[in-house]
C-alpha cells in the first residue's frame, strides 16, 4: 500500500477544471515531484491534499485512511506537513517561536496549564525550545532564532519555514516550490537538504518549476497540464516524453 494515494481527484472553480480526474500514488520513502506549466493545477492539488480546499469528487488516502473532507489541522496531526510557495510565516513572532509552533502537535500543555504556568509544563516547554533550535540549526538559520521573521532575508525565511514544517515530525512533507526565488547556489543547497530529509525517512511530494532540481532529486515525476495528468514516470523518461516536451516548449511544427 502506498503512503499517499490520490484517486480520480476533481476540483473545479466555476467552469475551470483545476484538477481533472488526477490519480497517482506516492510510495513510502520516495521523493515525488509534480511539474507542469503555470495554471496546471499543482497548487490546487496541494491544497486538496492538505485539506485547504474540499474536492468535488475523488479520494485522497493517507496511510490507508481517507483524508479528504478532514480539516487541515486534523490532516496535520496525521503526519502531513507543508511549506508554501509564497512563504507563510507567523509575523510578529521570532524565528524560534515560528518553529516552536511546529512542535504544537507534539506537545500537550493546555489552556489552564498555560495560564497557571504549571510546573509540569516547564520540561515540555524546554523540550519544545531545544528541539526547535535543533531544526533551526539543521537549516543553518540558528543565528536568526531571536529575530522577528519579517526582518529576515528571503532565503532565511524559507529556511525557517522548512524548519517549522520539519519540527512537526511529518511522515509526508509537501513542498510547494521550495526553490522559488532562490539563486542557483541556494537551489543546489535546497536540493541537498531535500535528499537529506528523505534519508531521515520522510516521504516528500514537491511542486517545482526548477527542472534541474526536479530531475536531480526526484525518484518519480507527475506532469500536470490544464488540470490533467499527462505523464507519470522516472525523471529520465520524462525528459524524453514528447508530450511533456510539447507542453513545455510548444509545438514543433509550424
Amino acid at each position: 500500500m502506498a503512503l499517499l494515494e490520490i484517486d480520480n481527484l476533481n476540483r473545479h472553480f466555476g467552469g475551470l477544471h483545476a484538477v481533472n480526474n488526477v490519480s497517482f500514488s506516492v510510495e513510502q520513502g520516495m521523493i515525488k515531484a509534480v511539474i507542469g506549466p503555470n495554471g496546471a493545477g499543482k497548487t490546487t492539488l496541494f491544497n486538496l491534499i492538505a485539506g485547504n480546499l474540499p474536492a468535488n469528487s475523488g479520494t485522497v488516502n493517507f496511510n490507508s485512511t481517507k483524508i479528504n473532507g478532514r480539516k487541515p489541522y486534523q490532516i496535520a496531526r496525521l503526519g502531513i506537513s507543508r511549506t508554501y510557495q509564497n512563504i507563510k510565516l507567523f509575523h510578529g513572532m521570532t524565528a524560534l517561536e515560528n518553529v516552536m509552533l511546529g512542535r504544537h502537535i507534539r506537545s500537550k500543555a493546555g489552556f489552564m496549564a498555560g495560564m497557571l504556568n504549571l510546573p509540569w509544563t516547564w520540561p515540555e516547554e524546554k523540550q519544545i525550545k531545544d528541539r526547535s533550535m535543533e531544526y533551526l540549526d539543521l537549516l543553518g538559520v540558528a543565528d536568526c532564532a531571536d529575530i522577528e521573521v519579517s526582518n529576515l532575508a528571503f532565503g532565511q525565511q524559507r529556511g525557517v519555514e522548512f524548519a517549522r514544517a520539519l519540527a512537526t515530525e511529518p511522515t509526508l512533507l509537501l513542498l510547494d516550490e521550495p526553490a522559488a526565488g532562490l539563486n542557483i547556489y541556494e537551489t543546489a543547497e535546497i536540493g541537498r537538504l531535500i535528499s537529506k530529509i528523505r534519508e531521515s525517512g520522510i516521504t516528500i511530494l514537491l511542486v517545482e518549476h526548477d527542472m534541474s532540481l526536479v530531475m536531480d532529486i526526484s525518484d518519480e515525476i507527475v506532469v500536470l497540464s490544464f488540470g490533467e495528468k499527462i505523464a507519470e514516470d522516472l525523471p529520465h523518461n520524462i525528459q524524453q516524453n514528447e508530450e511533456v516536451i510539447r507542453i513545455y516548449l510548444g509545438y514543433e511544427d509550424v
Binding site: N52, K71, P72, Y84, I105
Partner: peptide
C-alpha cells in the same frame, strides 16, 4: 503566562497566518 505558553503561541500564530497555523495542527 498564557501568552508565553504553548497555547499562547498558537493564538499568536493565528494572528500571524491563520492558514499556516491550521497546517501546523
Amino acid at each position: 503566562n498564557l501568552i508565553h505558553s504553548r497555547v499562547g503561541r498558537a493564538l499568536r500564530s493565528i494572528h500571524g497566518a491563520e492558514e499556516a497555523a491550521n497546517a501546523m495542527g
